[in-house]
Computed example of a mutant assay.
Amino acid sequence: MKEWMGKIRNLSLFTLMLLLLSACGKDNLTALVPKGYGAEESLRVIIITITVMIVVFVVVMAIFVYVLMKFRQKKGQENMIPKQTEGNKTLEIVWTVIPILLLIIIAVPTIAVTYNLADETEKEDSININVTGKQFWWHFEYPEEEIQTSQDLYIPVGQKVYLNMLSSDVIHSFWVPALSGKMDVNPDNENTMFIEAYEEGVYWGKCAEFCGDSHSLMDFKIVVVSQEEYDQWVADMQNVDPEFVPESTTAQEGKALFEDSCLSCHAVGNTPSVGPNLSNFGDRTMIAGVLEHSEEELVEWILDPASKKPGNGMLDAPYLQDDSVSEEDAEKIAEYLLQLKASEINPDSAE
């Protein structure tokens, strides 16, 4: 009895720990508070599955307790062999049919939701965004709007947005739990999913497929805004001026250093790039998806990206190989990058 009580106590503590840990982490990084159509449908399937599991658990435990009490060995029956039910066709049919029925109860809504979330009938009339997974960041291309950006995905509230996903290296998995379920991002075949957010806000996403050293740091955000804000953001991004010259001398020197040491991989403006597009870097709230958006963190990232995200592609940057960028240079580059705000670095903003 003491042994059983100890196991029950440990199980209770473990359950409590899971509940406490489930409340930790970034805001909106939960599938239990849906803020989008896909997440809402997924939660419905989760509730059905959990309900079936609870019913099965309760029934099994009730039968277990009943059998344990009714057929326990009594005094004077030490050598008695109870009646055997081996070969009872009725019982065998019952415990075969019941699991099949339970699986059908779970499978029907699961398949229905899966096909529903794979529906592409409205794709041509909706916003389409090409998503590319890389180690360890995300690139977003708006082909119709001719916009290139990274890490922060902007979408309007209340609209279906179709994501066409590919990987440039290994298999990744695109997951924004508050808005929708997971979707594999493969190197060879394109997968498509749609998201539809119900509320404005910032929703955190992660890579849900182990993809290398910094898999757990492959974070990104979906920024859901009103239609008016989205239209303004699109206009600002379309008019980003790659030749933008900052006012301060230090930032101007940083721009020159950036063009000399970083422009071979990164881009400012709506052109493809090997590394993350930095057109609206100053508008973002995180560096590399996980670091505080400050000049100090940015300088450290430029000088030693391996300490922040082991295994990332920036480790092969030429300036890191020949030590051509000093700490002073990194500070100048950081000052320049923090001034790259889409609403401020286009010709229209000066009028």
Rank of each mutant, 00 (worst) to 15 (best):
P156Q: 08
W138H: 01
E122M: 11
I147Q: 07
I147M: 10
H139K: 14
I127C: 08
F136E: 02
G158H: 06
W137M: 03
W138R: 00
K123N: 06
Y142G: 09
P156K: 11
W137F: 00
E141Y: 11
Q159E: 05
Q151C: 09
N128L: 14
T132D: 12
W138Q: 01
Y142V: 07
Y162P: 00
W137I: 03
F136I: 01
K123E: 06
E144K: 14
F136K: 01
W138D: 01
P143M: 13
W137N: 02
H139E: 10
D125Q: 13
G133T: 14
T132E: 15
Y142H: 11
S126R: 09
Y142D: 08
L153N: 00
Y162C: 12
D125T: 12
Q135M: 14
T149Y: 03
V157H: 02
H139F: 03
T132G: 10
Q148R: 08
K160F: 06
G133K: 09
K134T: 03
E141T: 15
T149D: 06
E144L: 14
E122I: 06
W138L: 00
N130A: 11
V157K: 07
D125W: 07
V161Y: 03
D125Y: 11
K160W: 03
I155A: 11
D152T: 00
P143R: 13
E141I: 15
E124Q: 12
D125M: 11
N128H: 12
S150V: 01
S126M: 07
T132C: 12
W138Y: 01
I155Y: 04
I129P: 00
T149P: 03
G133N: 11
E141G: 09
G158T: 05
F136N: 02
N128G: 14
E145R: 10
G158R: 10
I129F: 03
I155H: 04
V157T: 04
G133V: 13
N128Y: 07
V161Q: 05
Y162V: 07
I155T: 08
Y142A: 11
I129W: 02
P156M: 11
V131F: 06
P143A: 13
Q159V: 01
V161I: 12
Q151M: 09
T132W: 11
T132P: 09
S126E: 02
Q148D: 12
Q151N: 15
S150W: 00
Y142R: 10
V131G: 06
E141P: 06
F140S: 05
V157E: 01
S150I: 02
N128D: 10
E145F: 03
I147Y: 05
Q135A: 14
Q135I: 08
D152H: 01
